[in-house]
Amino acid sequence: MTDSLTGIVQISIAAVLIQNFVLARFLGLCPFFGVSKKLSSATGMGMAVVFVMTVASMITWWINKAILIDMGVEYLRTIVFILVIASLVQLLEMVLQKFTPALYDSLGIYLPLITTNCAILGVAIINTGINVFSGTGYSFVESTVNGAASGIGFTLALVLMAGLRERLELADIPKSLDGLPIAFITAGLMALAFLGFSGLSFFK
């Protein structure tokens, strides 16, 4: 039990900081630049990503184990996962709209944006690989935690970026760099800063 608890903490810290989805793995860059202009929408998008990533991790872990591995068709992983995630987001949207209109109002507009987001597919595929901390495959709990923590890492990067970009709006930036170019430069510098977290070592 202690081992699995340590493993979960390791996975969480790795997913949030060391292997941050945006700034270290360079996945989900499209919403990272598209929805990072305002802090409020960045937070909403981040919450939606955490939500979908967690649920998608749970479902795809099960699909991977029960269907793909059992039937020996692991090479269909990508296409089946895309299918599953896309339908899952649609289904989630309907469920939210029906049962929790308040949550739908705050997350609803971001859900279609992440239907086939590469970060969601990325976490699903990472969960099928080898867990570097234990040396074995991800268990159900571990992949769920990995999904949630990756989503939190994405949210962290998105919210930091939105905060920076809101300040950049007021800064005196050369015209040729105004807008997206300066955002790209900022993202690069942030990625360099996050590189520092790779010094955190959990490998025994």
Partner: peptide, 27 residues
Amino acid sequence: FLPVMVVGGVGLFFGLGLAIASKTLKV
């Protein structure tokens, strides 16, 4: 046969699921 059945089966399952959901969960 197997991959076609797997992808087709998963697709059919989720497709039907969405179709039912869109009826029952209609707002």
